Simulated scan of single mutants.
Amino acid sequence: MSLTKFKRNLTLALGALVLTSSAVAAEFPSRDIRLIVPWPAGGGADAISRKISNLAEQNMPVSVYVENIGGAVTATGLMQMTKARPDGHTLGVLTYDSVITLPRGNMVPGYSLENMAPIARITREADAIVVSKKSGYSSFEELIAAAKANPNTVRIGVAPEGSGPFLAVRRLEEKTGVDFNVITYPGSSTAEAEALLSGELDGAISSLGDFSGILESGDAIGLVELSSEQNPSYKSVPPISTLGYTLETGSFIILAAPKNTPADALAVIESAYQKAFESEEFQTWVTSIGVTPSWLGAAEVQGWMGELQTETFKVMDELSL
């Protein structure tokens, strides 16, 4: 084959690839999009995922339907997502356990964030310090002063070792130079709320939304959120950054697709969800449930996840967890 003919054939082949790629991009999405939420229906991650997806589908010619696949601390559903055809028609939702708990413990063979393409962070739900009205504390400064004056006497309830709230209380002790009497409670924050009401605890760490009932009744007070962003639903509770500390802990929701999903398809999805995120309806709704809307697009979210892992794993190493 002559060099001229070879170049001509190569040009035609490359042109065909470009046309094929453009055709695929133009056709996406060609069918309804499946969103796997790796938690049972009815929880916070499920509600937020459904709400923003209902709005996002208004920006696309297809519907987005949610499938709840719980199990193995989110791994069951997310591994199904990563094994789906990487064409943009199957997505998944990542939370704290997906990014921290599972990778840290190598708990599920085959589970890896490297098999996923993060699209965007949608929300953050910071941990907060909530105290019982019976405790007598009305500010973060009073709580810390009491813990310094009488080490191991201020009773703080958190989820079990290895959880975000458990790490939060240990990091808070390190940053403030205090020692709390830390009491762990398995399961949801309901047990901690009951312990606050009974006087069994002075304070507890979880999201403000988790304690919304006793906050609204006045039986508990939110002292501080472990965040750098003001929660628009609880404007009387300052972020800890305003008190001179850098400490951000809590959960979040990240949208992801299988690795090798075409960039054009990811861009369409990101655009649709960003428009949904920015809508007045979503902003009003998400703040009404006590969650902070917090967008990071595809260009930023991967780096943020890496930084979060590095910082959190370092704390876990120091605590031998």
Rank of each mutant, 00 (worst) to 15 (best):
G209K: 01
G222P: 08
P232T: 03
V224I: 15
I214S: 01
E225C: 05
S236Q: 14
D264E: 12
D219V: 00
L215G: 02
G222M: 11
D210Y: 08
S207R: 14
P239T: 06
L223Q: 04
A263Y: 05
A220W: 02
Q230T: 13
I214Q: 07
D210N: 14
D264Y: 15
S217E: 06
T261M: 09
P262W: 05
N260K: 15
S207N: 13
N260C: 02
S212C: 00
Y234H: 15
F211T: 01
L215W: 06
I240W: 13
V237Y: 05
K259R: 14
T242H: 10
E229L: 11
P262R: 00
L255V: 03
P232M: 11
S212P: 00
N231I: 05
L247E: 12
L215Y: 11
G209V: 04
D264V: 01
N231W: 14
L226K: 11
N231A: 06
Y245G: 09
A257M: 02
T242R: 15
A220K: 13
E229S: 07
I221A: 01
P262I: 00
P258M: 05
S233M: 07
P258Q: 09
A256H: 13
T249Q: 09
P239Y: 11
P239V: 03
S241R: 03
P239I: 01
P262A: 00
V224Y: 13
L223G: 05
E225S: 14
I214P: 04
A257I: 03
P232L: 02
A256E: 12
I254P: 02
T261Q: 02
A220M: 13
P258G: 03
D264S: 15
Y245P: 01
S206T: 12
I254V: 15
S228E: 12
G213W: 08
E216M: 10
L243Y: 07
S206C: 05
V237D: 01
L208S: 05
